[in-house]
Amino acid sequence: MSSPTFLLVGFQARRRAKARSRSLKPWYRNTPLVAGMIVVGLLILLAIFAPLIAPYDPIAQDLGATLQGPSAAHWLGTDKFGRDVLSRLIWGAQVDLRVGFLAVLIPFVFGSILGAFAGYFGGWFDAIVMRIVDVFFAFPFLVMVIVLVFILGSGETSIYLAIAAVSWVSYVKIVRGEVISAKEQDYVVGARLGGMSNARVLFRHIGPNVFSQAIIYAMSDIVMNIMGIVTLGYLGLGIAPPTAEWGSMILEGQEFITTHWLQATVPGLMVVITSLGVSWLGDGLSDLLSPERRK
């Protein structure tokens, strides 16, 4: 993370002289970023090229060869319907990553914009928005998602909707707080004195300085979402059964945990790897997006 020299720059030489005094390290020297990019990149490639990589059809049943151990034909064995576990794992990446990433988009955009307006204009608008946000915050994330999916019915669309309906509030809070503190910064006052419109001040001058926090949060949100889908899948509320998905794989594998432990463990491991990769990416991005974090 931060090397001693960075500490030094921050601590002692904050107001020191001379141009280029802050030696920015190139992005490829940013270890968490690179590690995150590699892990997430590989997973995305796996998801995209699932049809090419997966040796078998993930939903093709072979009732003659159920619950087999690892073999040359089935590297990770087969499940109770005789489906190839490896193929289901690869196809599962497609569903889980898609939901994980896409479900972040709507709340990210909606929540950030709402938070930016609330923070910038304040007043009654801010008061109303924040009360609504408080109500949403009063419920635990997963409980809300589960209840909403239960009401909306299972399936990918309801998952998107449920997650979007619940997680926008975090972005409102983050962006609002950042905008409120940025609003007091002299450079924003300076921009206003430059006669610029509110929209221009908000989106050109404040925006780039505050949305990075939302982007960094979005990374951890992706992890949350993937956990959400997996939990939903595990509870049987997720993606409908034959579709390969890590959560339902864990659920199905669980009953054979003593005899065929790979069935539940391997998808679980995939969840862990994905979470780790995305977290690294978030860490790296936070380094990259705020190179001149001061104070």
Binding site: R14, R15, Q185, D186, Y187, V189, G190, A191, P208, N209
Partner: peptide
């Protein structure tokens, strides 16, 4: 402004 470290937008 007083503080030249906060009066310029770091991203522009």
């Amino acid at each position: 402004f007083q503080d030249p470290y906060s009066s310029l937008n770091p991203r522009i």
